[in-house]
Design a protein around this nucleic acid. Structure first.
Lengths: 207, 207
DNA sequence: CAATACCAAGCAAGCGCTTGGTTTGTAAAC
DNA sequence: GTTTACAAACCAAGCGCTTGCTTGGTATTG
């Protein structure tokens, strides 16, 4: 299962919007603007202008501005959970599974869904109580993928530290790359992946 | 030089505000509110109410709301740069210096200045162009402390990875602790420091 | 008696969102 | 193959409210 076929099946199940649809294009522009200026500094007029409609017309697609933020986050988590699951299942050893997870998360943060991932990291405070609860629920599924692999590595004696702590450190380190990593800086995502794995004393598993 | 004496000398040089002064109390409350709700969602009325004055009276102390954000950030960097410098100079070996830096940064993120540090991480987009340039200038001084130590460790062959990459990964991992670490969770900052150092293959240097 | 710190009141601008009505796309009815 | 029906998509206008900030005046302090 490659990136495109996973995306297509999620669209078919109505779990994420088709990027070509009106809704999909709006969500893409929203992610870009939220990332660039922050949710609060982005006005509904900005959002509307970005897709070439009047501000009032937005409210035929979403009931509130916050619902747009929620949709950006929810669809991003859904897509990346699916991508991550596929990347992980393709690997055989737990060491390779971890490397696949790191690579996939770096990809999701610095690739196509990067803007939306940054929104997910930086704008969660602008969510309402209920939206936040729902997003956290989805995030837990995502996080469990990591913990399963890290716990297996620990049982095998490959990992000495607490899986929870390690996962949290990795979350910070990887998501922070969004603030500094630039693909055309001579450093590939594979290079980065290698450095991270090496940093954990798990180097030498090939690339 | 301990924490208090460093703070006092910075106050004497007018580089940070006395926490007991009107300005200092306002900045402390501002950091708390910016952290809790975000800069944009915090109104000047919120800020004024937090220190028990009218919203208009704020503008006798600061010309704009943004100037308050800038002051929170600038004073926090100044204080933590000084604290970090002291912590580092107290250590003898480079390995111990790194451990001291990690410990000091965890302290700054999760201790007294934690709220302000979180603001520094999450709210920089709300700064004006000029303020941002100034804050970045101060940050560069701070970052150089880290790079000097990491580069020395690399020359000694203790560290295999690129100091820039390592520092950035550490920045992410450590600043992210602000979102999950709770001191009364059975995990001390010393424990965390140990785990970080161990994660880098530099364990066994005592605590 | 000057400077500092504050209050009470409110302005202009920008905000999310609503409203009433028009255009566009689609598909059945004739 | 034109007409009719109807919903979805959109526009133009603007309402009600909140925002950062200003103003003119009054205590408080050394």
């Amino acid at each position: 299962m490659n990136h495109d076929s996973i995306l297509r099946s999620l669209i078919a199940e109505n779990l994420v919007s088709d990027p070509a649809s009106a809704r999909g294009r709006l969500l893409h522009e929203a992610a870009r603007l939220f990332r660039e200026k922050g949710y609060e500094r982005t006005t509904v007029r900005d959002l509307a202008a970005a897709v070439g409609i009047q501000s009032g017309s937005l409210f035929h697609h979403f009931r509130t501005k916050e619902e747009i933020l929620k949709a950006v986050m929810v669809e991003t988590i859904r897509l990346n959970t699916a991508l991550m699951q596929a990347a992980m299942e393709a690997a055989t050893s737990y060491r390779d599974k971890l490397q696949a997870l790191v690579r996939a998360e770096l990809e999701s943060i610095n690739g196509q869904t990067g803007e939306a991932m940054a929104v997910l990291v930086f704008e969660w405070r602008s969510l309402s109580e209920e939206s936040r609860a729902y997003v956290l629920e989805l995030r837990d599924i995502y996080e469990q993928l990591w913990l399963d692999v890290l716990e297996a590595l620990r049982k095998d004696g490959v990992l000495a530290a607490d899986p929870f702590v390690v996962r949290r450190m990795l979350t910070g380190a990887l998501s922070w790359t969004v603030t500094w990593y630039r693909p055309n800086g001579g450093l590939t995502l594979d290079d980065l992946t290698q450095q991270v794995v090496a940093m954990m004393g798990l180097a030498g598993s090939g690339r």
